[in-house]
Amino acid sequence: MSKKNSEENEKGLPKAALAVIILVVVAAVVFIVMGQREKFEPVVAGTAAPEFELPGLDGKQHKLSEYRGKVVFLNFWATWCKPCAEEIPSMQKLHEDLKAFPFEIVAVSVDKDGPEVIEPFLKQYGVTFPVLHDRKGRIKELYKTTGVPETFIIDQNGVIAEKVWGPRDWAEPSSTKVIMELVQYGPKDKEAYKSTR
């Protein structure tokens, strides 16, 4: 009990000093955190597509910025995801139809297994568009995805024009309206994309 008494005799800090310390600490934390505010932005239509670097199946690294100037169809998928497999044929058709245009499909697989699982899968579906592989799945945190498949239509300036949750039949004209508009008329102001949400 003597420890308690010695503490009672200790004066400690006056309330004002305590308040100052707390305010300084809180202000510092707020300042530092707010300096990184992009991390808290949702990744949706009207925001910039985060840059990343991932290996293709040949092992060569590719960055998203490589495709700047083209309309990018960024698709997240996995071999174990049935709806992803269902939309791949229509994606391949879209890739072939728009071959002559500044349009690129970049399909990122989040399979934990290696290329030996992905390659046969792609062969089976006759896929010729670029496929990148994020084995650790970190792209999911970067793009804040909540499942697969998810597709981001990115304009020529690297701004997300449309975000699609789940699969789509990309052969349907209504599905590719945004893509076609971008290819034909070029990028819009990013505010304009917010209405597609």
């Binding site: 420890k3 503490e7 200790e10 004066k11 400690g12 800090l13 305590l18 308040a19 310390i21 707390i22 600490v25 809180v26």
Partner: peptide, 16 residues
């Protein structure tokens, strides 16, 4: 360290 001011700051921080 058993210093009272550390304890007070700790409680204040817990409130924050």
């Amino acid at each position: 360290f058993k210093k009272k001011w550390l304890g007070q700051t700790a409680t204040a921080m817990a409130f924050v």
